[in-house]
Simulated scan of single mutants.
Amino acid sequence: MANVLGEMNAAATLQSPCDDCDIRDLAICGALRTNEVQRLNRIMTTMDLAAGDPIVDEGEPSDFVYTLTTGAVRLYKLLADGRRSVTGFLFPADFLGVSMQHTYSTSAEAITPVTLCRFQRTELGRLMEEIPTLERRLFARATEELSLMQEQIVLLGRKSAAERVASFLRGLSERQVKRHLPANPVSVPMTRTDIADYLGLTTETVSRTITQFKSKDLISVENASRIRIVDRDQLDDLAEAN
């Protein structure tokens, strides 16, 4: 009987928030062994935020690193003249604050209700020294973040409005697939103004372009936050133009 109780207690000890996480294989804990996950859990706290809640502010000390487990987040910078530039969007399994800068380079705000895993940077740094797999995982995600930034530079510098919107929709679809979700319909939780601020367009241009895509049967709009890609080949042709 004592042995059975001991096994039950050991199993309970091994349980962690990661056990029921839908994106565990994509998050930093996905490549870790059970004992390593337990060590990571000891320095992790879980945060639940409502839509519109701030997560970090540009310029404040980057004391924490975050993994988004549910919901969507916008990243943005405020320009000197007061205008806002959206620099990216985060979805489940994405990271915030991975780059080893002393301050956050952007502000982050919840678009929808979100859940995040938060890690104190210095504690995570010490654990990375002891668990090389963790360090490699974070480095890979930082590299992906850099790649997305480079894609946005091309998006803003060389493409027409229609090409930018097509690229954006295709990108959202591809990111869904990476999260083990269907490519269609595409979830669009951000506002048209968010999209415009990300693509360097006006809200009116984004709305007009989406209407044009509908009239040409490239897409169908199921509701304000769900768009179905109808003609993938034509959308891809637009997205790949430069």
Rank of each mutant, 00 (worst) to 15 (best):
N223G: 13
G82A: 07
F89E: 00
P132M: 06
I23F: 05
N242G: 10
E222S: 06
I43H: 09
R84N: 08
R136I: 04
A10I: 15
I219N: 13
E151W: 04
V114Y: 01
P61D: 02
A2I: 14
T70P: 07
T122I: 03
P189Q: 11
L156E: 01
E123I: 02
I227A: 05
V4W: 12
S147M: 12
L40Y: 02
R83A: 12
A12N: 14
Q176I: 13
M8D: 09
E36L: 06
M100S: 05
C18P: 12
R83Y: 08
V165P: 00
S85F: 09
L116F: 11
I153W: 05
E109H: 15
E204H: 09
L201V: 06
T133D: 11
T203D: 11
R74S: 05
S220C: 15
R74L: 09
V65S: 09
R126M: 10
K214V: 10
L199P: 11
D194G: 05
T69C: 13
L155C: 07
A142P: 07
T46C: 12
S225V: 15
D217E: 13
V221G: 03
K159I: 04
E135I: 13
L116E: 00
A196M: 02
D233Y: 12
P17Q: 04
R126V: 00
A50S: 14
D236V: 10
N9V: 15
R126H: 12
R158E: 11
R39W: 14
R83E: 02
L5H: 14
M1A: 08
L90R: 14
V206P: 15
N223H: 12
P92A: 05
A2G: 04
T209Q: 01
P54I: 02
V65I: 09
P185V: 03
I227S: 13
I195T: 01
T211Q: 06
I23Q: 00
A161Y: 01
A50P: 05
D197Y: 04
G82F: 02
M44N: 03
K214F: 05
F139W: 15
I43G: 08
T103Q: 13
M128F: 06
S173M: 03
E129T: 14
L181R: 13
S167W: 15
I55H: 07
K178H: 08
L40K: 05
E135W: 09
P132G: 07
R136E: 06
F95T: 00
V154W: 03
I210R: 15
A224V: 06
G30N: 07
R126Y: 13
S107T: 01
L26C: 02
E129Y: 11
L172I: 01
V114I: 14
M100P: 04
L148W: 10
G97R: 08
L68E: 03
G52F: 10
G157H: 15
E109Q: 13
A162G: 00
R33V: 05
